[in-house]
């Protein structure tokens, strides 16, 4: 009898796939952290209409939105070594950098940070702009510096507004990290591919890896709900 699935193979592939979770999570979380900095910086440039930089920011966001992530990953992976090499030969800069020793994970992290940063900047900008003008005025009126005002009053309120969107983008990013195998990073998807071609059982391994992604995303969603509740706790109208 012909079997639809080799169940044993499917089950046995889990440990190897799960062992690569740190790579997937590392790239997703690492790029979230880096992209938050990029996103806040870019958003502030646009809000304060900083000359020159705001034009560059617009081009950056437009480019990232208008090109496929896959292409962006290739651009980083092939472009950065070439640029470093060029700078070394032409200007003698970055002599200590050994292009060949940079791990592909680093390129993946960079590419995802730059990509997510562009999307986050728009979300963060609209979240900051959604904060009531009166909050800015009250902070100014008591003499708070712009930095203190942003850190203590505006960002916490903007964050509460932005979290649902940030969460969705983060979940998309987790799934998009399945692309990193193309530059040689062995994440959970890469591991699945390797196992699949070894055992010629692709259907089985892709079922296994999809289950791993699914569970991961469910856990992340749960955590996000908790974080959102905490960030919005001050909005509840009833005494705690």
């Amino acid at each position: 009898m012909e079997n639809l699935l080799d169940l044993n193979f499917l089950i046995e592939s889990f440990p190897a796939i799960v062992s690569r979770l740190p790579i997937t999570i590392g790239i997703a979380v690492g790029s979230l952290v880096l992209s938050l900095f990029i996103g806040v910086f870019t958003a502030l440039i646009k809000i304060y209409k900083v000359p020159v930089l705001s034009v560059i920011s617009s081009i950056y966001v437009s480019f990232i939105r208008g090109t496929p992530l896959l292409v962006q990953i290739y651009l980083v992976f092939y472009g950065i070594p070439k640029i470093i090499y060029f700078l070394q030969i032409e200007y003698g800069w970055l002599q200590s950098a050994d292009v060949n020793s940079i791990a592909p994970e680093v390129y993946a992290l960079l590419a995802f940070s730059v990509n997510l940063g562009a999307y986050l900047s728009e979300t963060i900008r609209s979240a900051i702009e959604s904060v009531d003008r009166g909050q800015f005025e009250a902070a100014k009126a008591i003499g708070m510096s712009p930095t203190a005002m942003m850190l203590k009053i505006i960002f916490p309120q903007a964050l509460a507004v932005a979290i649902p969107n940030l969460g969705n983008m983060f979940i998309s990013t987790i799934k998009d990290t399945s692309l990193v195998f193309i530059i040689g990073v062995v994440d959970i998807m890469g591991q699945a591919k390797i196992l699949g071609s070894r055992g010629l059982a692709f259907f089985e391994v892709y079922i296994a890896v999809s289950i791993v992604y699914w569970i991961l995303c469910i856990i992340v969603e749960r955590v996000l709900v908790k974080i959102e509740k905490r960030a919005r706790r001050y909005e509840r109208g009833i005494a705690a």
Partner: peptide, 20 residues
């Protein structure tokens, strides 16, 4: 800064810091 710290303002819409 000197003018702002030597004045205290009470707003029509209160403008309390909502997150505090």
């Amino acid at each position: 800064f000197a003018l702002r710290t030597s004045t205290g303002m009470v707003f029509q819409q209160y403008n309390l810091f909502k997150n505090l």
